[in-house]
């Protein structure tokens, strides 16, 4: 499968995606109106604590619901210069966590160099590892050891505990390779009950439905992965699919868009609003542009007026307290128990 960009699909353009989402003719309430109607103020950031860095769009997989439109045909990646800007921003702000994502961040040729720099700064490093990258090529086989050496937290997507549903979303053979990779992570100590080497899995629904109870899903994943494969992990984060990029294109093409958005709006939970992840983070694109979150990055919605637009300017700026730029896609973060890169929030 090719990325939407390589297919020259209309919805590969963030501007086209915004047109669908913010269609004034739609019966769906605007997100800002929904906040007001629920008696909630405009969303504002707290202190900057997390930097999420998108190292590039290249990936060894082409999952059907990828909100990054990543894949082997995407070549964009972060330059050394932008990485150095990120390191400078870390010196200027009390950021405790750096969250590395992509694509497959490990495919970036400077990945290991960058992790070493981050490690020296003493911040907690999360890698969003797609698992199969560990098995993709011999040069990646030592990744579990590399993660361990730098005490990185590994957060990995596994859409389901069965092969058929996982492979339908992520590609043929992905489940089997993911299981092999999880065993390699367990073998170096990741995910074991008393281990400090954190291995957390991400569950996102394999289609146009919402995630159920995170605790219940975690129990089922733990039971099945242990019984069927002897695999252990720490937490399961249940994440809602946001209507962006390939998932949006799928919703529109399969005529599930209206129904899915209605489900998100009906499940709007005012209690989930305070916990949304954009409040304490900045997301950095491979080209150094900065956003409130990874989703706003994909929709190319820059920070609010008066705020910097590039990581090189972050060191000298105060982004705490800024108004967050929202849209109808934000219903994905506030439906039911809420959703963030760390799972449910309410």
């Amino acid at each position: 499968m090719k990325s939407l960009l390589a297919q020259h699909a209309l919805l590969s353009a963030p501007s086209e995606q915004r047109l669908v989402l913010e269609d004034p003719g739609s019966a769906l309430p605007f997100f800002a109106d929904k906040l007001a109607e629920s008696g909630l103020p405009v969303l504002h950031a707290t202190n900057l604590e997390v930097l999420q860095l998108n190292l590039g769009r290249m990936c060894n997989q082409t999952c059907t619901h990828c909100h990054v439109d990543a894949g082997p045909d995407r070549k964009e990646r972060m330059s050394r210069e932008v990485m150095e800007d990120c390191l400078r921003a870390l010196d200027a702000h009390p950021v405790h966590t750096v969250d590395l994502t992509g694509g497959a961040p490990e495919m970036h040729p400077d990945f290991r160099w960058f992790v070493e720099q981050l490690n020296e700064k003493g911040c907690h490093i999360i890698v969003r590892c797609n698992l199969t990258i560990i098995r993709a090529n011999k040069k990646y086989y030592d990744l579990p050891e590399f993660y361990r050496k730098h005490k990185m937290e590994v957060v990995s997507s596994l859409p389901f505990y069965t092969a058929d549903r996982t492979d339908r979303q992520r590609g043929k053979g992905v489940f089997e390779h993911s299981i092999e990779a999880l065993k390699m992570l367990n073998a170096v100590g990741y995910g074991l009950p008393d281990s400090e080497l954190e291995l957390n899995l991400v569950y996102n629904p394999a289609g146009a439905f919402l995630p159920g109870s995170q605790d219940e899903l975690e129990k089922q994943f733990k039971k099945s992965l242990m019984a069927d494969h002897g695999i252990q992990f720490h937490k399961l984060f249940a994440i809602t699919n946001l209507p962006i990029s390939r998932f949006l294109e799928y919703l529109v093409r399969s005529e599930h868009y209206a129904e899915y958005m209605e489900r998100l709006v009906n499940a709007f939970n005012p209690a989930a609003v305070q916990g949304v992840m954009c409040r304490n983070m900045i997301s950095v694109s491979h080209d150094g542009s900065i956003y409130d979150c990874d989703f706003n990055q994909m929709l190319e919605l820059p920070l609010s007026a008066g705020m910097p637009h590039h990581i090189r300017d972050l060191a000298k700026s105060n982004v705490a307290g800024r108004a967050i730029v929202t849209g109808r896609h934000c219903y994905g973060c506030t439906a039911g128990a809420g959703s963030s890169c760390g799972g449910t929030v309410a």
């Binding site: 505990y161 069965t162 549903r165 569950y203 439905f209 159920g212 109870s213």
Partner: peptide, 12 residues
């Protein structure tokens, strides 16, 4: 069918 999917039930 939707509810069972959301509750994490498998196809089987």
């Amino acid at each position: 069918s939707t509810d069972a999917l959301e509750k994490g039930c498998s196809e089987a």
